[in-house]
Every structure is written in C-alpha cells, then in structure tokens.
Computed example of a mutant assay.
Amino acid sequence: MAFVITSPCQHEKAAGCVDVCPVDCIAEGEDQYYIDPNTCIDCGACVAACPVEAIFDEHELTPEQEEQLEKAENFFG
C-alpha cells in the first residue's frame, strides 16, 4: 500500500510533503510531485503536510483518481 498525490498538486506544488517524508520517496515531476509506491512506508506524514489535501491512500482513490497512481508508477518505472 502507498499514498498517491492527486491532481490538486498540479496547481500548488507546495513541496511540504517532500520535507516531511522520512524515506525521501517523493520526487518532483514536470507537472506535480509523485510518491514512489515501491518506497513509500505508509507513514502518512505527507498527508498532514499537504496544504491542498491532494494526498490519499491508494485504496481510497476514486475511479477518477486511479490514473494518478498509474502516473506515479510510470514516473518511477
């Protein structure tokens, strides 16, 4: 299980999530930040740090947000 950064990040890119991640699994992409699903330890620190509430547990994604998990997997793939 991992957390996923969704589309509200595309308008914000505040990077608070990067600063609090204990395993440095968040990287900046061209359009938003991404969480490496293979490195994420599910601590949830990033969720509290996000000012636009863009980060969700992968099992809580809506069907519209599912593509964000695929984008993250492709980004780190």
Results as ranks from 00 to 15, higher is better:
Glu12Thr: 11
His11Met: 10
Asp24Ser: 13
Lys13Gln: 15
Ala45Phe: 04
Lys13Ser: 11
Pro51His: 01
Thr39Asn: 09
Val18Pro: 00
Gln65Ser: 09
Asp31Pro: 00
Glu60His: 09
Lys71Cys: 12
Cys17Gln: 07
Phe56Arg: 10
Ser7Ala: 13
Pro51Glu: 03
Lys71Ile: 12
Pro22Asn: 06
Glu64Asp: 15
Glu53Ala: 11
Val18Thr: 08
Ala45Gly: 08
Met1His: 14
Ser7Arg: 11
Ser7His: 04
Ala14Glu: 01
Cys9Ala: 04
Ala48Tyr: 05
Thr6Phe: 00
Asp36Phe: 08
Gln65His: 10
Pro37His: 05
Val52Ser: 02
Pro63Gln: 07
Glu67Asn: 04
Gln32Pro: 00
Cys50Arg: 01
Ala45Ile: 00
Glu66Ala: 15
Glu70Trp: 07
Glu53Lys: 05
Ala14Val: 05
Gln10Ile: 08
Gly44Pro: 03
Gln32Arg: 15
Asn38Lys: 12
Ala2Asp: 05
Glu73Leu: 08
Thr6Glu: 03
Cys46Gln: 09
Val18Met: 08
Val20Ser: 04
Thr39Cys: 08
Lys13Leu: 14
Leu69Ala: 04
Glu64Tyr: 13
Gly29Tyr: 01
Asp36Tyr: 12
Tyr33Lys: 02
Asp36Met: 06
Glu28Gly: 13
Asn38Gln: 14
Phe56Gln: 06
Thr62Met: 11
Val47Pro: 02
Val20His: 11
Val18Phe: 02
Asp57Phe: 14
Phe56Val: 09
Lys71Val: 09
Thr62Lys: 11
Ala48Phe: 09
Ile41Ser: 09
Pro51Trp: 04
Pro8Met: 07
Thr62Asp: 13
Cys50Gly: 06
Gly29Thr: 02
Thr6Asp: 02
Val20Met: 09
Ala27Tyr: 10
Asp36Val: 06
Phe3His: 14
Asn38Gly: 15
Lys71Gln: 15
Glu60Asp: 15
Glu66Asn: 11
Ala27Asn: 09
Ala54Glu: 00
Gln10Lys: 13
Tyr33Glu: 00
Gln32Asp: 01
Asn74Leu: 10
Lys71Trp: 11
Asp24Lys: 10
Asp42Asn: 12
Val23Phe: 10
Thr39Ile: 15
Lys71Thr: 05
Val47Asp: 01
Pro63Ile: 09
Ile55Met: 07
Ile55Thr: 05
Cys46Glu: 05
Ile41Asn: 10
Ile35Gly: 02
Cys21Thr: 07
Val23Ile: 14
Thr6Gly: 03
Cys43Asp: 10
Val23Gln: 13
His11Ser: 13
Glu58Leu: 08
Cys50Ile: 05
Cys21Arg: 01
Glu64Val: 14
Thr62Tyr: 10
Glu66Arg: 14
Pro37Ser: 08
Cys40Arg: 01
Met1Thr: 14
Ala72Met: 08
Glu60Lys: 07
Lys13Asn: 12
Cys40Asn: 07
Phe76Gln: 09
Phe3Asn: 04
Gly44His: 09
Asp57Pro: 13
Pro22Glu: 02
Glu30Thr: 11
Cys17Asp: 06
Phe56Leu: 12
Pro8Val: 12
Gly44Leu: 12
His59Gln: 14
Gln10Thr: 13
Gly16Arg: 10
Val52Arg: 02
Gln68Glu: 14
Cys46Thr: 08
Cys43Trp: 04
Val4Phe: 01
Thr39Lys: 15
Glu53Gln: 05
Cys25Glu: 04
Phe76His: 05
Asp57Glu: 14
Tyr34Asn: 02
Glu58Ser: 09
Glu66Asp: 13
Ala2Ile: 05
Tyr34Val: 06
Gly44Met: 06
Gln10Leu: 11
Val47Glu: 02
Asp24Cys: 06
Gln65Thr: 05
Lys71Tyr: 11
